[in-house]
Structure formats: C-alpha cells, structure tokens
Design a protein around this nucleic acid. Structure first.
Lengths: 210, 210
DNA sequence: GAGTAGTGGTGACTATTGTCACTGCAAAAC
DNA sequence: GTTTTGCAGTGACAATAGTCACCACTACTC
C-alpha cells in the first residue's frame, strides 16, 4: 500500500483530504496478474475498482462475438461497477487485465455513505461516466464510418500508445476478437497495411508506424 | 405547469418532498414542436432537461453520417447535458424532438447546489447514466452482430412501441439516416421484409407485424 | 522422431452493403 | 395546365467482409 498512498493523496486530492484518508483506511489493494478476468458478464459487483497502475481492457460479448470497448488507465475506474453497485444490477461487460495491474478496491458498503456525506465524491463518478460515455460514442462512430483497415490501424496505434511498446506482441486471432471479426480478415488487412508501409510484421509481433 | 405539478410530485417523489418543491420553484417548462433541434453538436448546455411528455431522439453525427442512439422518454433526461453541464464541455450529440414535447428545464446554476445538498439528487443522475450506458452498449452490439434487415426490423418495432402508432409515417430517407446507411439500401431491405411478411408498405407509411 | 496445438498465409467463393444511374409517380409550386 | 421537387423502385456493378478449405511453420509434448 505504502508506495501508492502518496500517489492516491495527490491524485485524488480534489476529493478533500478527509475523504481521501477515509478511502485509504477502508480500501484494499489488489495485485492482479496479466490476462486475469476481473469482471464477468452477468456478475454482481461488490467493490469499485480504481486502477493504480497497469491496464485493464473492457469488452462486450454478444452471441459469441466480442468487441473491445475501451481501456481503463491508471487513476480511472469502471463505470459499470458504479451502476452495478448503486443499482445492484449485474455487469454487462467483461474486464480483463491487459498487463500486471494494481487496483484499489473501494468497498460498496461504504460507497453509499460517501456519496451521501462527501459531495465531491460524486464528481469522481460523473467524471468517469463522462469518460466512458465519450469513449462508447467514439467506438460507435468508428463502427459506423470506418472500414476495417482504418479501425485496425487505429487499434494498433492505440495499443502502442497505451502499452508504450512498439513492436506489439499480439496474435492475429487476438486482434480479430477485439475488433469483432475473423482471424483471416485480420491477416489479410494486416498484409494490406504492410504494403502501405503503415505496419511491419515480425514473428509474433507487429510494428506500427505513425 | 399546473397539470404537470402532480405528475412531477409523484414521479420524482424519491428525491424527497423538499427537493421536489425546490425543483418546481426553480425550473421552467418548455413546450417544443415536433422536429425541433434542441441540442446541437458542439453546443454548450445551460439547462438540464427532463422530458414530461412527448419524445426526444438523440443521435450522433460523424463525417456526414448519422446514427440514432436512443430515445428520451417521459421522466427521463439526457446524460450528455449532465456531463456537459458539470464538466462544462460541449455536447457530443444531437437531440431532436420526435413528437410535440414538454420539457422541464432545471437551471444549471442550481444543479451544483442540489448535488451538494440533496444526496438523492445524485441517484437521478446515476440512474440516467446507467440507462444510457446500457442503451449505447445495446446499440454497439447490434451494430457488430446484426445485419441490416434485423437492425431495420428492430428499429421499426421500437418506433412502433415508442410512438404507439402502427402504420408508421416515415420516409425511406429518414430511416436511412437514422440507421447510418443509404436510401436505396433501405428500399431494398424493406422489400425483403415485405416478402417475409414482417412489414407492409402503404403510401408514406410502413406497417409492422410482430 | 512422431504427434499435436497454435499461429499465420492464401485462394476461392458468397453475402452484404454501398454506389450510380435512371425511371416513375405524386404532390406542391408556379 | 406545366414545372419542379421529393420520394420510391430497380438493375448493375464494386467494394468490403465473412467463410471454408487447406497448407506451412514453429514449438512443445510424449
């Protein structure tokens, strides 16, 4: 916990020192390995996570097909857990760690109380809702307007920026899942992007050029 | 106002009578004609609307293409206006009345105060965020998984249920816009649905069968 | 070394959707 | 009346994406 305390104090300072101290007191820290499923579709949620470091990816599943929705970066949270917790409804999304990740877990039992007593606490929620809502809108617009080559290229650039790695280690199958399409299609489109010199494929890795 | 006061009192009663009275005191009622643009893309928002009767449709525009996102039904509000107002960021969506509509307008100036003093008030926001988030997820899943015939059929059924009219008065062009596709495509797919006896086209009207 | 599983490449074919060009029709405008 | 405008129907074609079948390569297991 110790190494994160100061980070939390500064980054969440807009909540007011009293609330921050209470959060520090009541919350627990969870260390999660890469590729761990944190939230399952239809699951009920008992804690609200705030990512401290690492990366979580969130996607939706519907009739076998998946689609990547967005990433939860450090100091962000998952809005599905808000609504799932405040309305006690099951999650509609799936969350998986993309990297080794550290999460601060706020107990739901305290949330209602904090919402009541610390009006600033709501600001956190509204902020996060806003981020995700915007992100979903962006996803929708890309789905409607962009062909797969553009979507794939944007996807790779995003991935590069988020993970700060340039030859990206990922299989075609994995990409296909995250973009809601088939493996062969990704192979084909990647080849096309390679011809256009936008990417370069190495063994098990893809290098992106911007 | 008078005819709506009792409706508001009962339907918003979970906010507590004190807050409800204050809302009634500070808010204004707006009567809007059909097909009126209420919120423009990029606009800053000064009021938070709650629909009292009628219907508002919300869509997104990106590179000339539009897509219907969802409808705001009576006693619902627009989350974009929450975030736009609380974060003072411009709207990312477009809102247009689908029918003659009456809206209760809460002044932004009071919102911050209410959020602070009435913890129940937040419940309203969270509820609405949840509704829209779910709706966007549904839209995304349909976009990824369903072919146009299914999307069109669902669209028509939704429209039927929302407006409570069965032969639906709408042009092919209008439908094409709301589904983010071209007019000819809608003509073709409607014909296909007609052959399957799922709809029947009359002049300027479409009848849906369930 | 044979077998097996995961990955990527490819050709061929199909289905779906988008686009273009042109027609007919009906209501509104002149 | 004639003209104009908007809507709908349609055939032809192109582009995009999804599917199937099959091969090649690598790495790991037994």
């Amino acid at each position: 916990m110790d190494n994160f305390e100061s980070v939390i104090r500064t980054e969440l300072s807009f909540l007011g020192s009293q609330l921050v101290e209470e959060i520090l007191k009541e919350s627990t820290i969870l260390y999660v390995e890469k590729d761990t499923e944190l939230v399952r579709d239809g699951q009920f949620i008992k804690v609200i996570p705030i990512v401290l470091n690492g990366l979580i990816k969130v996607f939706t599943r519907y009739e076998e097909k998946e689609l990547l929705l967005y990433y939860i970066k450090p100091l962000e949270s998952c809005v599905m857990s808000f609504s799932a917790c405040l309305e006690n409804s099951p999650s509609q999304i799936i969350a998986v760690t993309e990297e080794k990740t550290t999460v601060l877990l706020l107990p739901v039992s305290k949330i209602h109380q904090w919402v009541k007593n610390y009006s600033n606490f709501n600001q956190l929620f509204f902020q996060q809702y806003n981020i995700r809502y915007t992100e979903l809108l962006k996803t929708i617009n890309h789905l409607v307007n962009d062909k797969l080559d553009v979507r794939l290229y944007n996807y790779l650039i995003d991935k590069k920026n988020l993970t700060q790695k340039n030859p990206i280690k990922i299989s075609h199958r994995q990409i296909a899942n995250e973009l809601g399409t088939a493996r062969e299609v990704i192979s084909r489109v990647l080849k096309k992007l390679e011809n256009e010199e936008k990417v370069k494929q190495h063994t098990n890795e893809i290098e992106v050029f911007e």
